[in-house]
């Protein structure tokens, strides 16, 4: 049994992350789940959230925007609609997006409400991820 996991995060815009790590915690639709080497084969859907991985002594954060995770043979494959490493997140843009979403939600147009809500959640999660990585606070 290998003692490392291969973590691959892929989006339609290209691969975001590909490296060997020790541990992964991802935001599944049924709650967060952790993966360690030797995990059983596992497929789940993902929510908007922050994926955490540990490598050596350091911890990394990646924002993921819904999708799937497949775990098999000590390989974690994340297919996300979009994803960004915490250190790459544009905090200013996320903040602007948050404001826009809030304004739209105030207007209370029912059709756009769900979309605005999802946008808001994405923006808030992005900012949170950036904070965790210790930039843009």
């Amino acid at each position: 049994m290998a003692d490392k996991l291969t973590l691959d995060i892929v989006t339609p815009y290209g691969s975001v992350f590909s490296d060997e790590v020790d541990e992964v915690v991802a935001p599944g639709t049924e709650g967060e789940f952790g993966v360690l080497p030797g995990h059983v084969p596992f497929i789940t859907t993902l929510n908007i959230g922050i994926l955490t991985y540990k490598k050596g002594g350091s911890t990394g954060y990646v924002f993921v925007n819904s999708g799937y995770a497949e775990v098999s043979d000590d390989r974690v494959l994340i297919l996300a609609d979009s994803a960004e490493k915490a250190e790459d997140i544009d905090v200013e843009r996320a903040k602007a997006a948050m404001k826009r979403a809030e304004e739209r939600m105030k207007k209370q147009e029912e059709i756009d409400f769900a979309r605005a809500q999802a946008a808001l959640q994405r923006a808030v999660t992005r900012i949170e991820a950036a904070k965790k990585a210790g930039h843009g606070g």
Binding site: G28, T29, E30, F33, V40, P41, F42, I43, T44, T45, Y68, E70, S72
Partner: peptide, 17 residues
């Protein structure tokens, strides 16, 4: 074929995929 564990369910995953 591996025995995958599905969450929430295989159908749900398939329906979203």
């Amino acid at each position: 074929m591996k025995d995958f564990l599905f969450e929430p369910s295989e159908e749900e995953v398939f329906n979203r995929l």
